[in-house]
C-alpha cells in the first residue's frame, strides 16, 4: 500500500460502467474491511485527472463510443501508466480490458489506439459472444475456476510478454481458447460487470498484490460460495 489506507481508484464510472461494474469496487471494499484493512475509494469522472497514488485501479465495461472516448482521455492524462510503473495493480473488465492494450476495434471495426499498459491487441470478431463463461485459471495464480458472464464482440491477441489469465471451459473469452490475461500486476478479463462477485479468489489476488503479501486471512464466503456452486453446477451441468 502507498499509505495507511488501501486506495481503490474507479476510473471513469461515467463512461465505463455499463452493467454492474460497481460490484467490483463494492466487493474489494468489503473484503478489505472484513480483514480490518482501512480502505478508501475514489471515483474519477472522465473530466478529472487520474490520481497517481492509488493501489488498485478499476476499469469497467462500456459501449463502443464511450470506450473510444475513455481511451483518448486516459492517453492524454497519462496518470494510469505512471501509476502502473510505480507498481500499482489494475483490474480491467471487457471494454476496459481491451482499451488497456495497444489497439482495439471501434464502432465500425476501425482500429483505435489503446492506452498501451500491456501487450495485447483486440479487434472486432465475427459474432457477439453472449452468455455464461467458465474458465480454469493459470495455476501460478492459485485462483479457483472463474465463473461469469461475457457480452462482447472482441477477439484479443496476446503478445509475448503477457500470460493468459485462464483457459475457457465454456464461453469465448479472447477467442483462442484463452480468457483474459495478466502481466505484472495488470490483469484484464472479458468476464463483464461484477466479475469479482462470483470470483472472490480473484478479488483476493488483487488485494494481495496491493498489500504486498502472499496470503490473506480467510473470511466468511458463504454467499459467494453458494452462488458459485449454483452457477458452476448449472452451467457445467448443461454441457
Amino acid at each position: 500500500m502507498q499509505s495507511d489506507k488501501l486506495r481503490l481508484i474507479w476510473i471513469y464510472p461515467d463512461l465505463l460502467s455499463t452493467y454492474g461494474d460497481q460490484g467490483n469496487v463494492l466487493v474489494l471494499e468489503q473484503r478489505a474491511r472484513r480483514r480490518n484493512i482501512p480502505v478508501e475509494t475514489v471515483y474519477v469522472r472522465s473530466a478529472d485527472p487520474i490520481p497517481e497514488q492509488g493501489d488498485v485501479y478499476l476499469l469497467g465495461g462500456g459501449e463502443d463510443r464511450p470506450q473510444i472516448l475513455a481511451a483518448a482521455r486516459l492517453r492524454r492524462d497519462g496518470g494510469l501508466g505512471r501509476a502502473v510503473e510505480r507498481g500499482a495493480s489494475v483490474f480491467a473488465v471487457c471494454a476496459g480490458y481491451q482499451l488497456i492494450g495497444t489497439v482495439f476495434g471501434g464502432e465500425e471495426g476501425q482500429p483505435v489506439e489503446g492506452v498501451g499498459l500491456i501487450d495485447i491487441g483486440s479487434r472486432r470478431g465475427e459474432r457477439r459472444a453472449v452468455g455464461e463463461i467458465v474458465a480454469e485459471v493459470d495455476p501460478e495464480l492459485g485462483v479457483p475456476t472463474l465463473t461469469g458472464f461475457e457480452n462482447h464482440m472482441g477477439v484479443t491477441d496476446l503478445g509475448p510478454s503477457v500470460r493468459p489469465l485462464s483457459r475457457t471451459v465454456v464461453g469465448t473469452g479472447n477467442g483462442d481458447g484463452t480468457e483474459g490475461c495478466y502481466s505484472g500486476r495488470v490483469l484484464g478479463t472479458y468476464l463483464h460487470g461484477p466479475a469479482l462477485a462470483r470470483n472472490p479468489g480473484l478479488a483476493d489476488l488483487l488485494l494481495s498484490w496491493a498489500m504486498g503479501v502472499e496470503t490473506l486471512p480467510p473470511i466468511d464466503d458463504t454467499w459467494h460460495e453458494r452462488l458459485r456452486d449454483e452457477r458452476l453446477g448449472t452451467v457445467l451441468g448443461r454441457q
Binding site: 452493467y19 454492474g20 461494474d21 460497481q22 463494492l26 458472464f149 460487470g193 461484477p194 462477485a197
Partner: peptide, 9 residues
C-alpha cells in the same frame, strides 16, 4: 435478460 449483473447497479 440472462445476465444478473444489473443487480449491482
Amino acid at each position: 435478460g440472462r445476465d444478473t449483473s444489473w443487480l449491482w447497479d
